[in-house]
Design a protein around this nucleic acid. Structure first.
Lengths: 205, 205
DNA sequence: TTGTTTTCCTAATACCGTTAGGCGGATAAT
DNA sequence: ATTATCCGCCTAACGGTATTAGGAAAACAA
C-alpha cells in the first residue's frame, strides 16, 4: 500500500522530470516561446494529449519551470552569500555574481524569470514566491550592511534597492539578448563584478 | 504616369502603415509574439493571405517594425544629445534619459529591440543598422568627453561602453518586465537618471 | 477474479502561418 | 475604344498548433 503508492509517485515524478527536461532542451533550441507540446511529446515518446495528464496546460508547464528556476536561483544566491557571514558587502558581491552565473548557466529559466517571453503566461503566486525571497534576501543584506556602517542609509531606500536589482538585471538581460544559448564567451556576464562595483561605490561609506 | 504611379505608391504606403499600426496595437494587447496575422487582417479588413502582398512573411513584418523602431530610437537619442553641443556629459545624460523615455512610450518596439521576444526572428542587417548607429553615437560622445577631460580614459574602453549600455538597458528591461503596457507610474523609468549617475561617478574625472 | 485507478490513446475542434491559383477592376498600350 | 497587363484581394488547401472528449488497456486493489 505504502510502497506501491510510492512506486507510482516515483514513476510519475520521473515522468514529470523527463517532460520538463525535454521542454527545457527544446526551449534552448527553438526559443522559450517556440517550444511546442507536440515536440515535447515526440521527445518523450507520447502523443500531445497525454501530456495533459501531467500538466493541465502549456502555461502550467511554464509555471513549473518558473518555480523550479526561481527556487534554484534563490538557492544559488543564498549559498553564495552564506560564504561571507561576517562581511555584508562581500555577501552582496557574491550574491550578485552568483545571480549572473546561474542565469548564464540556465538561460531558459533566466529568460522566464527576467523577461516576459511567453504571451499570456504569468507566473502563479506560488511559482513567484522564491523570486520574492530573493528580493527579501537582498533587502536584509543591504540593511545589515547599513547597520554595520558599511553602506550609507540611502542604500536601503526603495530606490537604492531598485537600482541594485536594475544593475544586476541589466547584465543578465544583455547577456541573454546577445548570447541566448549561454555557450558564448561570457562577454556580458563578466560585467557582473564591475556593475556591482558601480553601485557599491555610490553607496559605500 | 508619374502622378498615377505616385498615387498608387501613396495608397500602398498608407496600407502598409495601417497594417503596421494594427500589428503594434495587437502586440500591445496580446504580447509581441502573441500577435497573429489573422487578427491583423481582421483589423484592417482583409483576409490573412492578402497581407502577403505587403509583407513576405510574419517575420518580415517584425523586421519592418524593428527597423522603424530602431530609427525612431536613434533619432530620439540624437535629438536629446544635440541640445547639449558643448557639454558631452550632459549629452550623455540626456541621451540615456531619451533612450528610456522613448522605450517607455514605445514598449512594443522596445521589447523587439532589447529582448528576443519572437522565436525564430532575427533582424536583418538593414533593420539593425540604426541600432549600431546608436552605439557609434555613444562611443563618439564618450570619446569626446574623454578628450575634454570630463571622463577618465577608462570610460572609452570596451568595458566602459558595455557598462553604460548595460546600465541603461537594465532600466529599460526592468520597466518592460514589470510594466509592459508602459501606462504605469514609471516606477522603473525614473531610475534612468540615478542609474546613469552611477556610471558617471565612476568614470568622471 | 472483480472492480478501480492510472496511463495513454484516437478523434475532433478551432485556431495558426503560408502557398497556390483565380477573379475583377484599375491602369497602360494599341 | 478595345485589348493587354498588372495590382489587390479573394477562396481553397496544407501542415502545424493547443486543447477537449471519450475510450482502451494496463496496473493495481479488493
Amino acid at each position: 500500500m505504502e510502497t506501491v503508492q510510492d512506486r507510482r509517485k516515483v514513476r510519475r515524478d520521473a515522468t514529470i522530470a523527463e517532460i520538463l527536461g525535454a521542454a527545457v532542451e527544446l526551449m534552448a533550441r527553438d526559443g522559450v516561446a517556440g517550444m511546442s507540446l507536440s515536440a515535447v511529446a515526440r521527445r518523450v515518446g507520447m502523443r500531445p494529449p497525454s501530456l495533459y495528464g501531467y500538466f493541465s496546460s502549456k502555461n502550467a508547464l511554464y509555471d513549473a519551470l518558473f518555480e523550479r528556476g526561481a527556487a534554484g536561483l534563490r538557492d544559488a544566491v543564498l549559498a553564495a552569500g552564506a560564504k561571507h557571514p561576517d562581511d555584508a558587502l562581500a555577501a552582496l558581491r557574491a550574491g550578485a555574481r552568483a545571480f549572473v552565473e546561474w542565469s548564464v548557466g540556465n538561460p531558459v529559466a533566466a529568460q522566464l524569470l527576467n523577461w516576459r517571453p511567453v504571451p499570456g503566461f504569468e507566473p502563479s503566486p506560488q511559482a513567484f514566491k522564491p523570486s520574492l525571497e530573493v528580493v527579501s534576501l537582498l533587502r536584509e543584506r543591504i540593511q545589515l550592511a547599513v547597520s554595520r556602517k558599511q553602506l550609507r542609509a540611502a542604500a536601503a531606500t526603495e530606490d537604492g534597492m531598485l537600482l541594485f536589482t536594475t544593475v544586476v538585471a541589466g547584465v543578465v538581460s544583455q547577456q541573454l539578448a546577445n548570447d541566448p544559448t549561454g555557450r558564448g564567451d561570457g562577454r556580458y556576464a563578466r560585467l557582473a563584478e564591475p556593475a556591482v562595483t558601480l553601485w557599491l561605490e555610490h553607496y559605500v561609506t
